[in-house]
């Protein structure tokens, strides 16, 4: 783990590409955000805020979902096709499930992105793991959305 990111302005060893070396800053250098070196946006800050905002909504959506589907009134034992058809007859539950699907997928995918960045140290490994993550998340999100929108109780 690098305490100060290599390449930060003011570090004693400017071009230290070895990430295992402790880089000491000169006193009173302004801390430069690691992400600001590459792009002008604050992507990581928005991601941080998104994790918290989506988490707040997911508390209601996911815990409500688990309470209704798994705990109350017989839990998973009463769930079958007609149960789903009954629920999805109501726009309220379709909206609930759609919001839950999108927020959980985006929140979970972004969380996995952070974890990949933490542990995959080689650039190539990190890149391909994230490509795999984004493609599979995209396909699952697309499938889930289509299922909610095109559900047909008389299939």
């Amino acid at each position: 783990m690098t305490i100060a990111p290599a390449g930060t302005s003011g570090s004693l060893e400017q071009d230290d590409s070895r990430s295992d070396r402790l880089v000491l800053e000169k006193p009173r250098t302004r801390r430069q955000r690691p992400s600001s070196q590459r792009s002008g946006t604050n992507f990581e800050m928005y991601s941080w805020i998104f994790m918290r905002m989506s988490g707040l909504l997911l508390v209601v959506l996911v815990l409500g979902h688990l309470l209704i589907m798994n705990i109350l009134d017989g839990g998973v034992n009463r769930i079958n096709f007609s149960f789903v058809a009954g629920r999805w007859a109501s726009p309220f539950w379709r909206t609930w499930d759609l919001a839950q699907l999108w927020l959980a997928m985006l929140h979970g995918t972004n969380g996995m992105r952070v974890i990949i960045n933490d542990y995959a140290e080689r650039d190539g490994t990190r890149f391909w793991l994230k490509m795999l993550l984004y493609t599979s998340s995209f396909l699952v999100l697309l499938l889930g959305t289509l299922v909610i929108f095109t559900f047909d109780p008389n299939i």
């Binding site: 079958n80 096709f81 007609s82 789903v84 699907l101 959980a104 997928m105 979970g108 995918t109 969380g111 996995m112 974890i115 599979s136 699952v140 499938l143 889930g144 289509l146 299922v147 095109t150 559900f151 047909d152 299939i155």
Partner: peptide
């Protein structure tokens, strides 16, 4: 727990998608 939930969510979207295939598969 975050990783665990994420992987289950994948499986769960796929199993629920069976409602679009046939009631029998879903049941």
């Amino acid at each position: 727990t975050g990783v665990l939930i994420f992987f289950f969510l994948f499986a769960h979207v796929l199993d629920t998608a069976l409602v679009r295939v046939s009631p029998d598969y879903y049941n």
